[in-house]
Design a protein around this nucleic acid. Structure first.
Lengths: 207, 207
DNA sequence: GTCTATACAAGGATAGAC
DNA sequence: GTCTATCCTTGTATAGAC
C-alpha cells in the first residue's frame, strides 16, 4: 500500500537526515513516485509527521497497557522504559525536533499532545504510587512528585541528547547507558525489596 | 550599529515565534532595512543563529569563571545554575531548537559545540569533586558520574520542556520549579554541611 | 481511486547598481 | 554600507490522464 510505503520511507529519511532536510520531492523520488502523488496521500508535509507521531504514540500505549496487567515492580517499570526507549529511537527523526512537536502541540485538529502528555504524567504518578504501595520504593508525596518530574524530562529528552551529541550512536549501548541512569535514580528511593527487584533486572539486562 | 540591532531584533523574533517561522525579510522589515542589507551583515540566516549561540556561550563562560573564584559550595553551585537558567531563557529561541544545534554541532567552520559541551561536562565533574572535597556532598565516583549525567541532560533540556509544554511560562516561576528539582537531587547526596548550604540558598531564594 | 504534470507562493541566497 | 532585482529551492494546490 502506497500510504504505508510513504510513511516508511519518510521515517527512514527523517531519521537519517532530519525532518527539515528532507523534501517532499525527495520522499517521492525514493519511491519512484511523482511529488504530486505524495500530496495525494498527505496534503501537507506536516501530515506525514503527525501520522508518524500517532504511530509512535499508539505503539507506546500498548506498552503502558501491558505494564498495567502485571503487579507493580521496579523491574517491570524498567522493562517498560526500555521498550519506550527503543520506540523513541525508532521514531527519533520526528521525535527529537522540538519545533515540530511544538507545532503539533499547538495544532487543534491533530492529536492533542498536551492532554496526552498530561495523561502520561498522571500515569507515572500512579506508577510510583503503586511502587510505593507494593513496598518497592520508600518515598513521600514530595519525593514522588520529584520522580515524576525527573522521569518526564528524562524520558522525553534522553534521545535528543543521544542523537545530537553522538552522531552514530550504538543504540543498544546508548539505551543501556540511560537505563543505568534511571536505575541509579530509582535506587536512591528503593526499599530492600525494591533493590532486589533492581538486581533481578540488572542480571537479566546487563548480565 | 546595524549588526547589533539585527542580532537583537532577530533574537526577539526567534523567541516569540521560533527560528523557522521568522524570515529574513521579516527581520529586515522590523528594522526598516532591505532584505539584502541583512544579508550584507550575515550571509546566511544560520550565521545569525551561530552568532547568537556564541553570545550565549560567552555569557555563560563568565558565570562559570565567577563561580570558580569562590570556594565550592552547594549554595554557590545553585546560584550558578540559576544564572545559567536565566541565560538559557533569554536565548531560548535559538537554544531549544535541537535541529539547529545539531547543524551547528556538525558545522566545522563555526564554534566547536562538541568540544564546548565536552568541556562543560568536565567542568561539572570537577565541580562535584570539589563539593565532595569541601564536605558538601557524600558521593563516590559512580555517584559523581551520575550527577554529571543528570546535570548535563537536565541543564540542557529543562528550557525545552518549559517552552514547549507551557506556551507563556512565568519565567521566574518556571526557573524556581526547575531549581527546586535540582535542590532535591543534590539533597539526596548532601552531607550535613551541604544541607546547611542548601537551607541557606533556599532562604535567600524562596524566602 | 491513483497518479502525473504543472503552476504558484514564500523564503533563502546572490549579483550588481548606487 | 545600503538597496533593488533576480534566482533557486521547497511546500502546496490543482487540472486532468488513466
Amino acid at each position: 500500500m502506497t500510504e504505508k510505503q510513504i510513511l516508511k520511507s519518510s521515517l527512514k529519511l527523517f531519521n537519517e537526515r532530519g525532518y527539515h532536510d528532507v523534501g517532499m520531492r525527495e520522499i517521492a523520488r525514493e519511491l519512484n513516485l511523482s511529488p504530486g502523488n505524495v500530496t495525494y496521500y498527505f496534503k501537507k508535509k506536516d501530515d506525514i509527521l503527525f501520522t508518524l507521531l500517532q504511530e509512535y504514540s499508539d505503539q507506546n500505549t500498548t506498552f503502558y497497557e501491558k505494564y498495567h496487567t502485571e503487579s507493580a515492580s521496579i523491574a517491570g517499570f524498567l522493562g517498560l522504559m526500555k521498550n519506550i526507549f527503543y520506540s523513541q529511537y525508532q521514531y527519533r527523526g520526528v521525535y527529537i525536533g522540538n519545533y515540530i512537536v511544538q507545532k503539533e502541540f499547538q495544532s487543534t485538529d491533530s492529536i492533542n499532545y498536551k492532554s496526552t502528555s498530561e495523561r502520561r504524567k498522571q500515569t507515572f504518578q500512579k506508577m510510583f504510587t503503586d511502587l510505593r504501595a507494593e513496598g518497592h520504593i520508600n518515598a513521600n508525596d514530595d519525593d514522588i512528585d520529584f520522580l515524576v518530574s525527573f522521569i518526564t524530562l528524562f524520558g522525553r529528552f534522553w534521545i535528543s541528547e543521544a542523537t545530537i551529541f553522538d552522531k552514530s550512536p550504538d543504540v543498544t549501548q546508548a539505551i543501556k547507558h540511560y537505563i543505568r541512569l534511571l536505575v541509579k535514580e530509582l535506587s536512591l528511593f528503593a526499599t530492600e525489596r525494591g533493590k532486589l527487584s533492581i538486581e533481578q533486572f540488572k542480571k537479566e539486562e546487563f548480565g
